[in-house]
Design a protein around this nucleic acid. Structure first.
Lengths: 131, 131
DNA sequence: ATAGAGCACTCAATATAGTCAAGTACTTGA
DNA sequence: TCAAGTACTTGACTATATTGAGTGCTCTAT
């Protein structure tokens, strides 16, 4: 899209948002219910706390995630989805359906070294060419 | 997800794929029909040719994009979606529906400096707090 | 009382991913 | 011959993500 479309087209802006690393993972995990910071971190796995804190702050500022600090001792935090966030369920489900159809039969031992599965040229080529 | 889930859960792997920068933009653009390299680059906008070439190669290796070299003079290349790629339409449409509901009313002048809209802490906070 | 563990982060350094500007090698048309 | 279009590639640079450690709190066990 041109600069104009990037800024004015809602779909483009949503894509820009969802393509941020870990955002979809966070939403997917939170769809199962609210979680504390470390709990969420473990559930997602692979995403370090620095990045997670950044993403959570960003998502909160967009009204997708709601941070709640419980006034108990010790003070506990929980992150949950707002109604706006819950509606991303449709996106996650569409991804899930696509994945079941097209990724389910692949073998599982993707050579992930760090971070997540990358599609950088060559990384998955040998593997993908099997299917 | 734990290392196991990251590798074995199809949805997680699909998310890892779709969160790669520009992948969703490429798919969305190609949904309208095949395009040549420069044409696609212009249509997406913002994505430089280096990254585009990498993404295209990765997506091709995953059977989502099909590269066709036409034997004309000068030789023209066109990138189109495979059936597997076309099925991502459901994901794009889900994103589009969500975007229309939640992003449409926002003002358009998102402070994009380079690349795409970032949700890094603070970048959109002031803006998002308006809605 | 002190140690160890869990919570929710933050920081600085480093690694990786993405971008920019330019260049390659080709053909077409003026 | 020159400018422009095709489809990329290269190298330098920058933005972003990750690592590993550390902070300050509380709770439980010894």
């Amino acid at each position: 899209m041109a600069r104009d479309e990037a800024t004015f087209c809602p779909a483009s802006r949503a894509i820009n948002l969802l393509q941020e690393k870990w955002v979809l993972h966070i939403v997917r995990t939170l769809l199962d219910g609210p979680r504390g910071f470390n709990d969420l971190s473990r559930a997602i796995g692979g995403c370090n706390t620095t990045t997670l804190a950044q993403r959570l702050e960003g998502l909160e500022s967009l009204g997708i995630v709601k941070k709640t600090v419980h006034s108990v001792m010790p003070p506990k935090t929980s992150y949950g989805l707002t109604p706006r966030g819950v509606e991303l369920d449709a996106v996650i489900q569409a991804i899930d359906r696509w994945a079941r159809r097209h990724l389910a039969s692949s073998d599982g031992d993707v050579p992930v070294r760090r971070g997540t599965t990358s599609i950088r040229a060559g990384a998955l080529r040998a593997r993908a060419s099997q299917g």
